[in-house]
Design a binder for these strands. Structure first.
Lengths: 237, 237
DNA sequence: ATTCGCTAAAGTGTCGACACTTTGAGAAAT
DNA sequence: ATTTCTCAAAGTGTCGACACTTTAGCGAAT
């Protein structure tokens, strides 16, 4: 019985879609916020009010705070004691620094991938690249798909390194920042054809089980990608 | 008046020394826990009970939880929903993976240091190394100081790269894990003399502003350090 | 009109409480 | 004696409340 409404239950997802399975609220919140920040839904540099954001997502401040602590550790927000949190502000200098990190880390990833990827994984990587080739031939201009494809490619090589630390670091930490730059600066490539060729050389080196060459090619690939970004930025200013 | 004890104030630091200035409780707690975990005071693999740990440190569970979220992001504890948190368990495999990361990252750091360190910083680095040389000549066996010195040396080169991302990543994340291995496995060096010489070559390359050579030497240095660790482990088993 | 100080609103830091989940010890059944 | 079921104890997930800090708007003094 008791037709009275039990009104104070806690599953009314006020604004954002946060209803989900059994996984902790904090974690869903963390994912939602990360996405919102990366995609610019919450603009870079903007101040975050805990009470307001908590209300928008229909959670308590405690849960939100825990998610914020993790976002801070991923360098997506900055917090100062008693002053509150802000979304990070992207800068050209930081982007260059990230490219230097990637050159080191993904270079090592390629080296290890040449040693540790299975033949099957290499085949699938080749198939993926073939698809990219077709897409480029068909319609050149779909910058979004190209960028997405580029990320997929790099992602798989990192996985292929079989180094858990490296995988975590790149895929769970750094790539989110990188995606944030792509979303917010709309970095277009202009060099999908060249990138495609560089990817093919890289697969060849991995397939030949030549770690030294794989690392060299990956580093060159990332350096030339960086030079492209530099050029785009310079013409913007 | 009022000789009654006001017993429920919140500055009784029950067990650990946590009294400090104005910086947030959560942060001091985070530092204290990180130190305790790195130094093995809380043993690796042990389960952490939030209520108990909070009581020991005289803080509420909320504050502790926030600190735990940050510790998890630094890979010092692992948490599973509804099951609680455990201190990470160190493994030989993971240590090798960390050395691979270091080879890539510190190699890049050395390359950038050769470009970006000031002459004064290079001079001070040389002085530091000279001190190490004296210490080795005087009393060989102070493994602790040697290891500490080794860490100092690497630390300064990373700083010299002037790449903030790289500095954060190595000094704030990875080195804590590395220190944890040193504390808990008591990795002794046996090769302080050789390390000293390798460090000197590295300074020479940086001083000559030769990025390529600096990276090469750093990578060799870390590889040979890794081989030493491998040897120590193999004789343990 | 401008500057300075004061007060109220908003925001952050921290806590204790309650509901639901997991764990583990003891009772009941085989 | 062994296995299974049950239920209480412990632990985690989440919330709302309160104290202290910062911010911002308003009025007083120059």
């Amino acid at each position: 019985m008791s037709t009275v409404q039990d009104s104070d239950m806690q599953n009314q997802s006020t604004a954002t879609s946060l209803d989900a399975a059994n996984i902790p609220l904090t974690e869903r919140l963390f994912d939602a916020l990360q996405r919102a920040i990366v995609e610019g839904e919450i603009p870079q540099g903007s101040k975050i009010s805990e009470p307001e954001l908590a209300r928008q997502h229909g959670v308590s401040r405690g849960s939100l705070r825990e998610a914020m602590a993790r976002l801070e550790a991923r360098k997506l927000v900055e917090r100062k004691p008693n002053l509150g949190a802000r979304v990070v502000t992207l800068s050209y200098e930081q982007l260059i620094e990230i490219f230097q990190l990637r050159e080191a880390l993904e270079g090592m990833a390629a080296r290890l991938a040449a040693q540790n990827m299975t033949e099957i994984e290499i085949e699938e990587l080749q198939k993926l690249l073939d698809q990219h080739g077709e897409q480029i031939a068909e319609q050149q201009g779909q910058a979004y798909f190209q960028k997405q494809g580029d990320l997929d490619f790099h992602y798989r090589i990192v996985q292929g390194s079989k180094n858990k630390q490296l995988i975590e670091l790149l895929c769970n930490d750094l790539y989110h920042l990188l995606r944030m730059y792509r979303y917010q600066f709309g970095m277009r490539s202009k060099r999908s054809q060249q990138a495609y060729e560089e990817h093919q050389y890289l697969i060849n080196a991995i397939s030949a089980r030549d770690p030294e060459m794989a690392e060299l090619l990956m580093r060159q690939h990332i350096r030339s990608s960086r030079r492209n970004v530099e050029a785009v930025f310079l013409e913007k200013l």
